[in-house]
Write a protein that binds this DNA or RNA. Structure first.
Length: 263
DNA sequence: ACATTGACCTGAGAGC
DNA sequence: TGCTCTCAGGTCAATG
């Protein structure tokens, strides 16, 4: 679930709930999603602090602490945040629990532990270290920059869109939607795309991600011209009403319409 | 440079 | 009800 639009919603959620109040203590389950940081380090870094502001880059969410360092959250394939009051109401698969002085709690949930909790002194440095590309919704990513990033790639367009080192934020589901809206077959090689088609993909990338955020990243709120709600056996293409097909692109299940999305 | 595969880790849902 | 199997929207490393 957590691709760019989902993480943007988590950011908005955190902005509306867990900022500007003192953290009393933090409880972290051990696990390798901690990567290089230890749970003690994170506990120490958070205790007594106030989350000041948030930032999102691709699928990563950052929250700035008083001392200027940032808490980094990534949600892997499953996960989210939950802010609640009553002790003991923590959701299943809570891996980190922040307890605020006002009695509320913020839970970081990651069922499969494929997410990541980390600390960084600086967002830019973190982004560089991870070699993340520009955020898909960054205004600086205009059409020329987009074409430039994809230029001379021989990869399949879907793989290229999902490559976080080129552009950060697009995952399996939204890559399918973008290509569906742009009417491009997911296996088309990037260097076989003409300028018009690339332009269409660019426009749809921006439009799909914006729209998904406006719909709060909830599949059932998406426009009925979208293929996302149809990604299942027997799904129907909203355009031609043919049956949606499944294939595999770089190991990921891909849904597309063979009639509307030709090479 | 790119595709493919498997590993990471866990649990929901399907099928029996 | 309970067991087993398959699958999942992410990322990384090894291999061809």
């Amino acid at each position: 679930m957590p691709e760019l639009p989902d993480v943007e919603i988590f950011k908005q959620y955190l902005d509306a709930t867990g900022l500007h109040q003192k953290i009393e203590d933090v409880c972290i389950e051990r696990g390798q999603y901690l990567q290089d940081a230890s749970s003690n380090q994170i506990q120490t870094a958070l205790q007594g602090q106030v989350l000041q502001q948030t930032h999102r880059h691709g699928k990563y969410l950052f929250a700035e602490l008083d001392h200027g360092h940032w808490l980094v959250l990534h949600f892997g394939m499953t996960g989210g945040l939950s802010y609640y009051k009553v002790d003991g109401d923590e959701p299943d698969h809570t891996r980190m629990l922040i307890r605020y002085q006002n009695g509320y709690h913020l839970a970081y949930i990651s069922q499969r532990k494929l997410g990541e909790i980390a600390l960084t002194a600086d967002v830019e440095t973190f982004v560089e270290e991870r070699e993340l590309g520009i955020d898909a919704l960054d205004p600086k990513l205009d059409q020329a920059a987009f074409v430039d990033i994809l230029a001379d790639s021989r990869a399949m367009i879907k793989s290229a869109l999902m490559d976080q080192q080129r552009i950060a934020g697009i995952g399996n589901v939204y890559a399918d939607e973008i290509l569906y809206q742009a009417r491009v077959h997911p296996k088309t090689k990037v260097n076989e795309l003409d300028r018009d088609t690339l332009s269409r993909i660019y426009q749809q990338m921006k439009a799909v991600l914006q729209t998904a955020i406006e719909c709060r990243a909830e599949p059932d709120q998406l426009p009925d011209t979208y293929i996302i709600p149809q990604r299942h056996e027997g799904g129907i293409c909203p355009t031609c009403e043919g049956e949606v097909q499944q294939l595999e692109v770089s190991g990921r299940t891909t849904y597309y319409c063979p009639t509307c999305q030709t090479r």
